[in-house]
Amino acid sequence: MAKKNPKISRALAKNIRRNFVERLIEIALMLSGLIAVLITFGIVFILVTESLPFFEAVSLKEFLTSTVWTPNFEKKNYGILPLVSGTLTITGIALIVAVPLGTITAVYLSEFASHKIRETIKPVLELLVGVPTVVFGYFALLLVTPILQKIYPDLPTFNMLGPGIVMGVMIVPYIASVAEDAMRAVPMSMREGAYAMGATRFQTAVSVVMPAATSGIVAAYILAVSRGIGETMIVAIAAGQQPNFTFNPVESAATITAYIVSVALGDLEHGGIGYQSIFAAGIVLFIMTLSLNILGQWTRKKFTERY
């Protein structure tokens, strides 16, 4: 028979002090997490409320379908498409450069390079991450575009190709580092299995390690797209700040970020519709990166590594 209300010995009784400290720590941790959430909501809130006046003056239909963006002109027109096309084209060029280079670098570092080589190359790549983007911008304008003009003389000084390529170079270390981490996390037993079947190093890397690391590699690409879409300085400096509805890389163009920064730096008077337009553009940017995040989450779920 179990006794009712058994007496709990002192040694087993709840330690009030320890419980209290635990509780305090928990609250502190929760508060710091909450700050991040609050800031995010604050940003969304400001974006929405600030762009409301804009959407009172400009219809959503015009904003989404018009192919002309001329806030500075006599006849103002607010169609976001030229900024979106500029953003997508430059990001696309950057990816064409960065995805192969970044992936190959990652495969080399993770599967081929000796310990010594890896420890030499990685810091150099990290150095590239540390270069201020304004330097990349002038690099595009003053070095890459002139070189491209030698090959293709009709290329204007401000174009999407040069900054796109430079942005690609800038993104390589991001892809390389995230993808390399993903591949290195593939357990050795998986590689040994492939080698034991008589696979070469390259076959092992491509047919076993990469598929096993799919979710991490895709995450690297998604990070790269976000980085490209959000990049401001390179484009603002070298692409011309000319809203232009085109996907042609040899034309000049502006991106969403380049437009926002030009307005924020004072091209337009505060308070007017033109000024409010940067919040509308900001929402578009926010939605683009948010969908990328969601896509990232989804691929992560879909391709979770099950070694």
Binding site: P187, S189, A194, A212
Partner: peptide, 28 residues
């Protein structure tokens, strides 16, 4: 390794279909 094959302690199938796992050695 083509003549002496190995089975490991922990099953380590590749992230592929059943068919492709078995065909792997011939494919390489």
């Amino acid at each position: 390794r083509m003549r002496i094959s190995m089975v490991f302690q922990k099953p380590n199938p590749f992230p592929k279909s059943i068919y492709e796992n078995v065909a792997y050695g011939l494919r390489v």
